[in-house]
């Protein structure tokens, strides 16, 4: 599979007030494949958000390089091309909505790209359909629920027809229902539209269906693998301050108690099938 993003020994220093720097990312290399669903986890301050902001040139590497579809993010002339291909959804649903109605907000990115009005209207309708907000198109954004606001943010990016979507803890401020709505939208985006998804999250449950999980700590990539590898019990996530998802945790306890459970049991159904 072809690579959409290639990160080669990326290091990033945050300048501190009054001189000095903090190393937020430390010699990190990662390749992201086209069409992949990648989950990115790690404790607070591990550099997840900093990494995310490098993926569409909001931050530029101190050392090393990032290629998005072969384009260097550090080159000024590629910046807007890169931002068009790699869309970004942030944590706070309120602070990324610009316009006073739902449809105007979806149109915002397209207006910035100077797309002709007829095409904007068509793509806005498609994007709202995709996230299931068509009936809200004339609503004021502040009347939407948290989950709807995040889906609106996703629609705004989707309308720009990106190749890759980076989400920085998009569900952190949502209730369980909003979280489910957003996750379903992401899955659909990835499976049916073939858009690469990079999903940063605190919630381990949200990573179970990812193609690959990357674990970060102190600016470094510490583990990488499929959910069955990461949550298989061999990796000590607790020492990183991360919590195992419920089912793998149960499996681990059962194994410690002497029960032989094969690898790859991640959800309730699998566990029930095995036990009963």
């Amino acid at each position: 599979m072809s690579k959409i993003i290639e990160i080669n020994s990326l290091t990033y220093h945050y300048p501190l007030e009054g001189g000095g720097v903090i190393k937020a990312l430390d010699n990190l290399s990662l390749k992201i494949a086209e069409g992949e669903y990648l989950a990115l986890i790690g404790p607070n301050g591990s550099g997840k958000s900093t990494l995310a902001r490098h993926l569409n040139a909001l931050l530029l590497p101190s050392e090393g390089e990032i290629l998005v579809e072969g384009l260097l993010t550090s080159r000024e002339e590629y910046r807007w091309e890169i931002r068009r291909h790699v869309g970004m959804v942030f944590q706070n649903p309120d602070n990324q909505i610009v316009a006073t109605t739902v449809e105007e907000d979806v149109a915002f990115g397209l207006e910035n790209l100077a797309v002709p009005p007829e095409i904007i209207r068509r793509r806005v309708a498609e994007a709202l359909e995709m996230v299931g907000l068509t009936s809200f198109s004339h609503h004021a954004p502040h009347l939407l629920s948290g989950g709807q606001k995040q889906r609106l943010a996703i629609a705004g990016i989707f309308a720009m027809q990106p190749r890759c979507l980076v989400l920085d803890e998009p569900t952190a401020m949502l209730d369980p229902r909003g979280r489910r709505e957003v996750l379903e939208t992401l899955k659909r985006l990835n499976r049916t539209e073939g858009i690469t998804v990079v999903h940063i999250t605190h919630f381990m449950e949200e990573t179970l269906e990812a193609d690959r999980i990357v674990v970060m700590d102190k600016g470094r990539l510490v583990h990488e693998g499929q959910p069955t590898d990461i949550f298989g019990g061999d990796i000590d996530l607790e020492s990183l301050g991360l919590e195992m998802p419920a089912i793998p945790r149960v499996v681990k306890i059962l194994r410690a108690g002497g029960l032989e459970i094969p690898a790859g049991v991640l959800d309730v159904n699998q566990l029930v099938n095995f036990l009963c």
């Binding site: 569409n56 909001l58 807007w80 931002r83 068009r84 869309g87 970004m88 942030f90 706070n92 309120d94 602070n95 990324q96 610009v98 449809e103 105007e104 149109a107 915002f108 990115g109 397209l110 207006e111 910035n112 790209l113 100077a114 797309v115 002709p116 009005p117 904007i120 209207r121 806005v124 705004g156 990016i157 720009m160």
Partner: peptide, 23 residues
């Protein structure tokens, strides 16, 4: 909020009004 919004706008390719179109 203003700070967050500025980053979000930039991420959505906002670069001033010059060559924008309107829905």
């Amino acid at each position: 909020r203003a700070d967050d919004l500025a980053v979000a706008m930039e991420a959505r390719c906002y670069r001033g009004g010059e060559q924008r179109t309107k829905m």
